[in-house]
């Protein structure tokens, strides 16, 4: 019998790793992977509560989150490729054309 806190702490740790990755890394692909990390930690929390409370809707929501994450990955990577064609860089500090 594993207490529910353990799952939630693992999820929190993965989320924080994602946050730190987004804030510190400047490579666009790694920032994108950190976002996937955060999405997955949220999924772990949803599945944990779904399983412990005996409610199926958490797992259904995880299914939808996964579908949206797939769509997001496809579009985001296409944007990264389009930027790379124009500027030949993946460094986010050099992609500052929208900065005012």
């Amino acid at each position: 019998m594993i207490p529910i806190e353990y799952y939630l702490i693992i999820s929190a740790f993965m989320f924080v790793c994602g946050v730190v990755g987004v804030l510190t890394r400047r490579n666009a692909i790694i920032v994108f992977m950190s976002i996937e990390l955060m999405l997955n930690s949220a999924n772990l929390t949803l599945v944990t509560f779904s399983s412990y409370l005996g409610n199926i809707y958490g797992q259904l929501f995880v299914f939808f989150v996964m579908a949206v994450a797939a769509a997001e990955a496809a579009v985001g990577l296409a944007i990264i490729i389009a930027i790379f064609r124009n500027k030949v860089t993946m460094n986010l500090d050099e992609i500052n054309i929208l900065k005012w």
Binding site: I10, F13, M14, C17, G18, V20, G21, T24, R25, I30, M33, S34, L37
Partner: peptide, 8 residues
Amino acid sequence: CVTAVMVI
């Protein structure tokens, strides 16, 4: 946990 740290 370890692989999450490794990724970033």
